[in-house]
Design a protein around this nucleic acid. Structure first.
Lengths: 196, 196
DNA sequence: AGCGTTTTGAAGCGGCCGATTCAAAAATGT
DNA sequence: ACATTTTTGAATCGGCCGCTTCAAAACGCT
């Protein structure tokens, strides 16, 4: 039929995501994207459209990889409290590790772009909902097994954990005090886990 | 001695803060700032230095105005739980009101610029600490009066409230469900206020 | 081999970026 | 009135912005 592409689409989106994650949307130029993906601008535009669409693709990729990993932590075996603590403390460790990929890409997108870009808003909302749903399922499971206070709504608890979780990731951006952040995790879990 | 300035420095910084707040740092051009402040570029650069310094001034201005208002809510008379609820619910209402000033300027700065700019990181940390300190003072007062569970450290509780507070402001950017956000506030306060 | 189709690299489009220059204007102190 | 100092507006600096054009190259297919 025609000339095939020389590049792997997944690797290109990975490189684009990494670039947007590190620098943000506005600070990333199309030349940055060309260099990091090793594609000429014409190939990039031909294959993916413009910068905006590449950003949306990057957000979806984040959900398929990083967010999926977070959900996996919640679906792991073991006590519910341990899984919740693991999710939050893993995020704290990642945020403080200085990988050059600051924080959570979805949160970054929410703050930098959601107000100005409805597409980004929708994509981020979807991302947040995936985590919230996993939290709700995990908390409901804990209620059934007696690990979590059954008096409170699992929905509300899930949103409570999500708020604290995302708040911690905001604080971690300027306050690299691991112990102080972990104290909040413990305090949060103390609020609705039953002593075993 | 010499020709005096025609402009009010405070109004200029106010206009700059408003512009940075609405659009973010990278998306704001020096021409935007010139137009909104009604100052020519030479006046702007002569009086305040470059874009970066104007941004730092804007962050300080935010702390002196918006953040100071938040602290005032916490110092108000009345039950501690009411003050805490008022702080959080006021923020939710503001965030969902569509003023064009998205969210909390300090959080926006933390996410967009703190990783790349140590000056911004310091400024934002200072801002967060002001709120955290006010929360700690308020919670300690509640412990003394018997309104707040005295078993938990006021420091940790303050960071817990701060995390939830900032997490809610992140969620509000993509999830404009007022009732769902307020549920989290109630659930949070239920965790450590004593029933009256 | 030759056709049809797509991808690719190089060059470049108009426009805006952050920041500066410079002379005219406007105030002060004497 | 004058010298001094600072502010101001207009013009503009080199450079990068997002994106497009276009012809050559690279393949699949018959």
């Amino acid at each position: 039929m025609a000339r095939p592409r020389k590049f792997d689409e997944d690797r290109v989106i990975d490189a684009a995501m990494d670039t947007f994650w590190r620098r943000g949307y506005e600070a990333t130029s199309t030349r940055d994207l060309s260099e990091r993906t090793e594609l000429g601008p014409s190939s990039l535009y031909n294959a993916f459209g413009d910068k905006h669409q590449l950003y949306l693709r990057s957000l979806r990729k984040y959900q398929e990889t990083a967010t999926a990993e977070q959900v996996e932590l919640l679906r792991a075996p073991g006590p519910v409290a341990d899984r919740l603590r693991n999710l939050l403390s893993t995020a704290i460790d990642t945020d403080l590790s200085g990988t050059g990929r600051p924080g959570c890409f979805a949160i970054n997108a929410a703050i930098e772009r959601a107000a100005a870009d409805p597409d980004v808003r929708d994509e981020v909302r979807s991302n947040f909902e995936v985590v919230e749903r996993a939290l709700r399922d995990t908390l409901a499971e804990g209620q059934r097994s007696g690990e979590i206070d059954p008096e409170r709504s699992a929905e509300v608890l899930a949103r409570q954990v999500l708020s604290t979780y995302y708040g911690l990731r905001v604080l971690a951006r300027v306050q690299p005090d691991r112990a102080a952040l972990l104290d909040v995790v413990d305090n949060l879990l103390d609020g609705f886990t039953r002593s075993s």
